[in-house]
């Protein structure tokens, strides 16, 4: 029974995925279909068009095991080992430095503003 519920939830979520893909294709949008599907599902939940109990179990399973779903794409790196060898190593260093910069600046900026606001309320 639990398996059936999870399967049904995933089927509903998948339906939103296909609707999103379709909108992306028809509208020739730069936003990926999966993101459009997510926004549609989010709006459907907010407006009570969809009950959260229709998707919660299946969604929980998919979100919890996101790391598993990434493995096939991440393994694709082995196709580019020659590009990343030698001077190419520098590319990875640049991605590393730049990505940490992004995390720290956006994180520190938002935390700074939150603390400013909290001070304001005190």
């Amino acid at each position: 029974m639990k398996m059936l519920t999870i399967g049904l939830h995933i089927a509903i979520v998948t339906m939103f995925y296909y609707i999103g893909m379709w909108i992306q294709r028809v509208g020739d949008l730069f936003i990926p279909g999966s993101i459009i599907g997510m926004m549609l599902l989010f709006v459907a939940l907010l407006t009570n068009l969809m009950e959260v109990t229709w998707i919660d179990k299946g969604s929980d399973l998919l979100v919890t095991h996101l790391p598993l779903l990434f493995i096939p794409v991440t393994v694709g790196v082995i196709q580019y080992l020659d590009v990343l060898a030698g001077k190419g190593m520098l590319l990875l260093v640049i991605v590393l430095v730049s990505t940490i910069l992004v995390a720290v600046t956006s994180g520190a900026f938002s935390q700074f503003i939150v603390h400013q606001k909290e001070k304001h309320y005190e």
Partner: peptide
């Protein structure tokens, strides 16, 4: 691998659920 990879699409859609819970 493509079969596992395929689920990445619906999984991104499923992120609407935690989003909704934290609205």
């Amino acid at each position: 691998g493509a079969w596992i990879d395929w689920f990445l699409g619906p999984a991104v859609v499923a992120l609407a659920y935690p989003l909704y819970k934290q609205r």
